[in-house]
Design a binder for these strands. Structure first.
Lengths: 189, 189
DNA sequence: GTCTATAGGACGATAGAC
DNA sequence: GTCTATCGTCCTATAGAC
């Protein structure tokens, strides 16, 4: 990566730029493999300049994840007002258009299994809420909503990994369509 | 981790010890997060002593993966002589007893999405062969064996991630049993 | 087969000037 | 808001003795 031009920016813009650069680099290398130097270079900053904005390397990761959450809330609306089948399809369609974000989550989800990873608690909480949301949506039409929730989440995560590993030879939306048919076959809804 | 006693060992035993230690540490931190110093400490060696056996850090990872492959071949027998449903159940049962190995693969599978990761090609090839094996087993009893293969692999990988994140609150074998019912419901076999 | 010694960097973070 | 300078630590890898 070439070092960019240096210039003075307002703090808000600079922060956005930093988060965008860090998102790409964390998706590529994970958190353990991320270097502040690379992020700084990408932004046309020195490392102390970068640290002025995010405080520490952990702070940078937290900023990235919080920014993602805000984006998600803005774009997805109220999940509990939708049908489970439609919600999943919409989610898959959206993910198919932003492989870099999907990769960010895939890499961090695995890396953060380690209890001392800075995103460990974040991903533990995320798993709980995702499973609960799916189960709540499935409850009216399924006799075992928790079991279905586990399977739905697993299928989405697993298919995404396959797709990220072979984006050219693989169609995420098509794979999900086929999988959903089996997943939702017996539902009364 | 405390530094162990130093002693001279035959090369074969030392290699096994190194691979065991590295397996645990890679599962914990991934490859980018692995340090040769930690592996050496765990084995009661200095870093140059460790490098004498594995050549380089990449060489250590390759040794770990090759050792896993050998173990798998020894323990699983000929996969194509079995029924798909039974094979999956056996695999899940086995994985439920070795969370550390499952974590090794989960972490490396995500990390190795990066094209310059030393295990990138390994995991790309692995995905191809796993999908082909499942599809071959499914072909006699399923009209769309490739689609089923994607879904079976995705479900196993995804459930394993959920289980690793919450081993106490989650039962891998039970989750798979419930999922398999939906997965294999319409099969003619 | 294992060591000591060391090269040669990269790392995250801080202090303080501007 | 960004810099220079620097600290102390960690890293992989090599050379050569034993």
């Amino acid at each position: 990566m070439a070092r960019r031009e240096r210039s003075r920016l307002p703090a808000g813009q600079r922060r956005e730029q930093i988060i965008a650069a860090a998102t790409a680099l964390v998706a590529e290398r994970g958190f353990w493999g991320l270097s502040m130097q690379d992020v700084a270079d990408e932004c046309g900053l020195t490392v102390p300049g970068l640290l002025h904005h995010v405080g520490s390397k952990d702070g940078l990761l937290i900023a990235v994840l919080e920014h993602r959450d805000a984006e998600d809330r803005r774009s997805l609306g109220e999940p509990h007002t939708r049908d489970l089948r439609d919600l999943c399809a919409a989610l898959v369609r959206r993910n198919a258009g932003q492989p870099e974000i999907v990769r960010l989550f895939a890499v961090l989800a695995a890396e953060s299994l380690a209890p001392d990873h800075p995103a460990h608690d974040y991903f533990a909480a995320r798993q709980r809420t995702v499973l609960e949301s799916i189960a709540a949506l499935a409850a009216p039409v399924c006799p075992a909503p928790e079991a279905l929730a586990h399977q739905v989440m697993a299928t989405m995560d697993g298919l995404q990994l396959q797709w990220l590993r072979d984006p050219a030879g693989t169609d995420l939306v098509a794979m999900w369509r086929a999988a959903a048919e089996r997943l939702f076959a017996g539902l009364s809804g």
